[in-house]
Design a protein around this nucleic acid. Structure first.
Lengths: 325, 325
DNA sequence: AGGTTTAGATAAATCGGTTTACTAAATCGG
DNA sequence: CCGATTTAGTAAACCGATTTATCTAAACCT
């Protein structure tokens, strides 16, 4: 395979390892022109490629950051990831993405493996179920930023959206259009955005003096969703509007409606909380709440970068506004 | 921060570093029960986490593989990535994803940095513009698998779809429906799938005895596409069917049609080559050619795994069938 | 008893760089 | 011309593990 090491280069160039190292690190302060050239040539001749692993071991710094995404096929996540990547690229950091699949076990696994790999910091879309581990990292002063979801009782940099507010505004909007029977469909309330969105929904109804009807609130996992929707739409008073709390819910609802032949717009008004790639191509009149994924990703990366470079500021939660489209 | 090393554990447990190492690597062959326990306790007490970097340096093996994706926001890519990730996860490999943005410079950059990081192998969606570098890797016997695109004159494991065949079948299908004026829209013909799809389109027309009209073939970058489409739809004989060579093209075309108020189905038949997340929710009658992303990703990962484990088989190209939906 | 196994553990070399402390030669001011 | 300073380069320690060759003490065998 390949085994050219710094020692080989040194030998060929007729200098010491140290000098080659200086050269590679561009410490030219005290270095003769001829030496520089000789090293350059030797590197060229041997096709030498430095070994990052060795360097990292000594420097205790890998220039890598880990990103643990809850679901890599979720469009919002890839948008954020993309932004993080861009930032890292311009700051000489390398991003490693992992997919935790919303599974706390996997999340734990990845956190541990990334730390074992000595990544310089972590950006996490937390499952929220690994509190001890989170706390341990905080107390060790390890650089971490949480994205998309907040975790209670934890002093950590976070980047989220105003889930409750945006939802409440959107629902209020629908109420103003004359709707009274508004359904809210959500996956199990395990993470903060879902909880906050439900809270926003309830607030909007309450503010408008509409009673909250628990029949209209569906909390189910994706496989169970169809059944629950079946129930919802066999109520004697059917909903005239429906709020899908995220894109997966939207997909499930969309499939269901298509199957049942329920027409959007006339029979049912639909609001979706999430960025959807082809949303503007859909001709149905669906409202979307879009989160500023790019800005959020950039911010998260910035916050991590600051921590890695020991700019000591107390953890803060950054809330970005979502907008209704 | 954190600085517990194996030496610390050894000291606390009252044994030598070597023994601790054996323990961690589960070489229990010659190890007393009491020693095992002492080490276990010491690790627990100190909260010791092994340093992967150090291990990798010695073992010359990082258990990491790099995946260089052409475009991370491309749904097809994330589906493949997901499958690769799954495979790696079950085989104790860790996947690092990078986004080359279809930029040969970035691609080169990432290849070099991943190799410097000593990843055990690479799965690449190649830009096709770094032939020297590809060749170098091949000649060094470095484990590599190409995905989605093939590169000429290069003996390398590849996983692709039958682009020409699938396109040709789809176009044939449209011809059977009675269409004669079929447009083909594609981004610059820089990578093999685009070229092959165009070839498939031409073949279907020729086979059906339809003359190829170059006015109906649009090759443009996404920003230029709108203008070109404008031209296409101001021809005196407008196309009645349109083949979008991938999802980006589809988006551009979709936007254009929406703007112009051109109705799909009646005025224009649309065929798209690519997996689209919400395709089944669109009520317009669009045909999609879907590639078996999950299988392809798995296969690619398998091929890489085999190479890493030195199972010597000559490079092969695996062609997966796409299906029309 | 004396020699051979064998179980259990270890010292030391190694991986490929970085970094520190040190030396030798060249330059300089007076 | 001498001592001080600057310039150029090096030897050796180090980072935190793995691995090999070695060692010891007890068990085993005639």
């Amino acid at each position: 395979m390949e085994k050219v090491t710094m020692a080989d280069v040194a030998k060929v160039a007729g200098v010491s390892k140290s000098t080659v190292s200086q050269y590679l690190n561009k410490r030219y302060e005290y270095m003769g022109e001829k030496t520089k050239l000789k090293i350059e040539e030797a590197i060229e001749e041997l096709g030498y490629q430095p070994n990052f692993i060795a360097r990292s071991l000594k420097q205790k710094r890998t220039s890598m950051v880990g990103i643990i995404v809850a679901n890599i096929t979720h469009f919002f996540s890839t948008e954020i990831s993309r932004a993080i990547e861009d930032f890292c690229h311009t700051h000489d950091l390398h991003a490693i993405f992992c997919n935790a699949d919303d599974d706390p076990e996997k999340e734990k696994n990845y956190i541990e493996m990334l730390r074992a790999k000595q990544v310089d910091g972590l950006i996490i879309f937390p499952t929220g179920q690994n509190n001890d581990l989170y706390k341990k990292m905080m107390s060790q002063g390890y650089p971490v930023v949480f994205v998309d979801r907040k975790v209670e009782n934890l002093d950590v940099f976070s980047v989220i959206t105003d889930n409750a507010y945006a939802t409440s505004m959107a629902v209020q909007h629908v109420i103003e259009k004359g709707h009274r029977n508004i359904a809210f469909v959500v996956q199990p309330l395990k993470v903060s955005p879902r909880i906050d969105r439900l809270a926003g929904y309830k607030k909007a109804l309450t503010d408008a003096g509409i009673e909250i009807n628990s029949d209209y609130i569906i909390e189910a996992s994706i496989p169970d969703m169809k059944n629950k929707l079946e129930q919802l739409f066999s109520l004697e008073v059917k909903p005239t509007a429906l709020f899908a709390a995220n894109d997966r819910v939207f997909m499930a609802v969309g499939e269901f409606l298509k199957e049942k032949g329920i027409k959007l717009g006339k029979e049912l008004e639909l609001i979706v909380f999430d960025n959807i790639p082809f949303s503007h191509l859909l001709d149905s009149p669906i409202s979307f709440i879009e989160q500023p994924a790019a800005e959020m990703g950039k911010k998260a990366a910035e916050l991590l970068f600051q921590q890695i470079n020991k700019e000591d500021t107390p953890p803060e939660v950054f809330v970005f506004p979502s907008r209704i489209v």
